[in-house]
Amino acid sequence: MNAFDYEAPQSVDEAISLLSAGNGNIGILAGGTDLIAQLKEGRKIDLMLDLKQIPEATALSFDEDSGLSIGAATSCSKIYSYDVVKNHYPALVDCTSLIGSIQIQNRGSVGGNFCNASPAADTPPAVIVLGGTCRIAGPNGTREVAAEDFFSGPGQSVLQSGEFLISIQVPTPAANSGAFFLRFIPRNEMDIAVANAAASVVLDSEKTTIQEARVAIGAVAPTPLLVADAGAALAGKAVDDEDAIEAACAASRAAARPISDMRGTIEQRIHLSGVLTRRAIQGAIQRAKES
């Protein structure tokens, strides 16, 4: 690891001015579970900018109107231990509680998971199906981007130089709704998704018909994908409409554009997109019924 400077700004403004001051290569630090591993593997930085002293970056709050606000550097374990998340956002528990291991969850954040922008990242699909948005701070103020529009390629996001992610906003779930995330890994923990998927559904008051649905898949394309066709295939259909669910799975398979690597082959990943989409939809319907 090469030598670098370290700064821990106390406010968003201070962070912005450090980012704009021409400090060479800057490594923004949240939990460091990606960043420090990358530094050890040869990534070179001149300045490490630690976000954890900025109150907004480690906050976690909920309000009925604006929904859940997750500071970008808030650790996964803090998120899944939060009662509101446990009770109203189980899909966020699904994804934050399976990242790495307990040690990794105690450091790693959803913001870091987004900004690292791995195609196989485990939190984006759930945030996408929950209709989450990314709040970005920059020299010209803050802007919001839908979670599904945040990613632009492997390791790449819409963040411009001088910008950083402050928080992720997730709206309050609708009545009779449910969401579910799962991934496929060869082991049972400490592994990177071969494929992952999340689904959310809003049911009618009888809980027999799907009014609205969203499906997102990961590790099967350069970025996490919102599969609009899968959601459309389910909207207006009965919860037990097998053909509709199969159509949604087919939409996921069609949307997947995976590569083959040592974690999985193209064929396997396309197939898994369908399998996981089905399981995610079933899980979401089940949760909506229980809500």
């Binding site: 082991r187 049972n188 990177i192 974690r263």
Partner: peptide, 16 residues
Amino acid sequence: LTNASLLDYRMPTCLD
């Protein structure tokens, strides 16, 4: 060697 880490060289964990 494309999996020279214990993340990708998948030995069983206790959950396996």
